[in-house]
């Protein structure tokens, strides 16, 4: 059994899971309002009207905690030239042929781009969501803006949901990853194999 390295503090993990829980509830209630095929999800929150009432508040919680989380992880997600090299070999990464990849720091290029997609999309969701937030804010906006907002909100939500599908799958796919967010630690082997630059920084090896 290899030694463990701390990857996330208890505070970071809590922050992440608040965002995650809020995301799941917001996504399911949002999908319920998007397509009749998903309307049954509204029952998770107590029916259509409750889903409509709660969805924006859940979204606001998600936004606030996301901003807190993004400001914690901001500095690890700066795109560097090696990230572009890494992205060019995304096909090999998907085929699990990881030999000779540029050495990622705390996050690889895929994780970084996902981070920036979220940093853009989640504030868009907030702003477009406020425009259509009944009955508190929507009455203050003209109808043409509400029409634009519903489309923008749906598109941004779609991008975020797709991003999270990728994010969750990547965590399942890359073995030894989930414990980083549940226990806070990863094995040294995991760190060395998947995030070598970060591994060196952490261990001095």
């Amino acid at each position: 059994m290899s030694k463990l390295i701390q990857r996330y503090t208890a505070g970071e993990r809590t922050n992440h899971w608040v965002v995650a829980i809020a995301f799941v509830l917001a996504a399911l209630s949002g999908l319920a309002l998007f397509h009749p095929a998903f309307f049954f999800f509204s029952h998770l929150l107590g029916g259509g009207t409750w889903a409509r009432i709660l969805h924006p508040f859940i979204g606001a919680v998600m936004f606030l905690f996301f901003i807190a989380m993004a400001s914690r992880f901001w500095r690890f997600n700066r795109i560097v030239p090696a990230d572009r090299q890494w992205m060019k070999r995304i096909g090999d990464v998907l085929r699990n042929r990881d030999e000779g990849l540029p050495e990622p720091g705390k996050y690889n290029a895929g994780q970084k781009y996902l981070f920036w997609v979220m940093v853009i999309s989640i504030p868009v969701l907030l702003v477009s969501g406020i425009v259509i937030w009944q009955p508190w804010f929507a009455p203050y906006f003209p109808i043409w803006l509400m029409r634009l907002a519903v489309v923008v909100h749906a598109l941004a939500a779609w991008v975020v949901i797709l991003g999270i599908v990728v994010h969750v799958y990547a965590a399942i796919w890359v073995k030894g990853t989930i414990q980083a967010m549940t226990r806070g630690t990863v094995s040294e082997a995991w760190a060395k194999y998947h995030h070598r630059a970060w591994y060196r920084e952490m261990t001095g090896k």
Partner: peptide
Amino acid sequence: KPLMSLGIGLAVFAGFFHFVTAGPKEI
């Protein structure tokens, strides 16, 4: 409405079939 819903469904299936074909990334 239908296209975006389909997109989400396809993404989930893509993940599942990637897992059963390429397999997990193990050390």
